[in-house]
């Protein structure tokens, strides 16, 4: 205990020192403010459904596709609830996953295997692992909560003619596959335009680009296409989204283990 306290004092004096010399604390609070504003602007969608098509491309340009139906229930003050139902590849048709995401404690996750009619609680530790063999990790596509990262504002930048805040963020989740991410946040709409990911060794790993944003209910922005390139393997994955619907009347009862079993 004594040692911890000592470390804290050292750490806080270091923070104090650096804030005096570089404005570090200001950058941290500005980074957090941007994240909070982005979160605020995406609050109130209540629920959504959409169809997602994943196109996996390897170095030889061979492609694999997956079609997934995604249902989301907004949970105010905690992570959202999500249900993903696989339509293709055909051999896993009907497989579905239910996730209760949380900001700080680990997500709760269940998988439904239709061949055995079995619901399996699965460990959420593999958040850094690939989602369905794609270049997206589970942590990339799970609900983005403010508390999942700490932040630091870096600079303003112009990306393809769009004024952006450049914010560095550090995963709070100890098993994250990343040391840091650099996000370009649209200054007008507070939506991400690009995110660059650095792996556990702090080496450039992936770049995610958001394109074809659409606005729903005059408020919520969703990108029709999300393109992830892995710089280390040369592989890439494109997510194309369609049929977005909001406030469809979904409730908690659509996100429990019984609904997981009958999800189609």
């Amino acid at each position: 205990m004594k040692k911890n306290k000592f470390v804290k004092i050292i750490a806080s004096s270091f923070l104090l020192l650096s804030s005096i010399t570089t404005g570090y604390a200001d950058d941290i609070s500005k980074g957090l403010e941007i994240a909070k504003e982005a979160d605020k602007r995406d609050t109130g969608f209540v629920d959504s459904t959409a169809k997602m098509k994943m196109i996996l491309k390897n170095k030889q340009n061979q492609t694999n596709t997956r079609e997934v139906k995604v249902k989301t229930l907004e949970v105010i003050g905690d992570g959202d609830k999500g249900l993903s139902i696989f339509n293709t590849p055909k051999d896993i048709k009907g497989t579905a996953s239910l996730t209760y995401s949380h900001a700080l404690k680990p997500d709760e996750q269940w998988l439904y295997l239709p061949a055995l009619k079995r619901v399996k609680r699965i460990s959420s530790k593999n958040k850094s692992g690939p989602f369905m063999g794609s270049e997206f990790a589970y942590e990339d596509i799970s609900s983005q909560e403010v508390d999942k990262y700490t932040y630091k504002y870096i600079k303003d930048d112009v990306l393809d003619g769009i004024n952006c805040f450049v914010v560095e963020r550090y995963p709070a989740y100890k098993h994250s596959g990343y040391t840091r991410q650099i996000a370009w946040i649209n200054q007008q709409e507070y939506r991400p335009e690009k995110i660059v990911f650095y792996d556990r060794k702090n080496t450039l790993l992936k770049t995610l680009t958001y394109t074809d944003y659409q606005q729903y209910l005059n408020k919520f922005w969703r990108a029709d296409a999300m393109h992830m390139v892995n710089h280390q393997t040369g592989k890439s994955t494109t997510l194309s989204w369609k049929d977005y619907k909001f406030k469809t009347g979904l409730t908690d009862k659509d996100f429990n283990r019984n609904s997981l079993k009958r999800a189609k």
Binding site: S123, K125, N126, S128, G129, P130, H175, G177
Partner: peptide, 12 residues
């Protein structure tokens, strides 16, 4: 018991 990402691969 699951070893996640063995030998820095994607495999579990």
């Amino acid at each position: 018991y699951t070893f996640v990402g063995v030998y820095e691969s994607d495999a579990d």
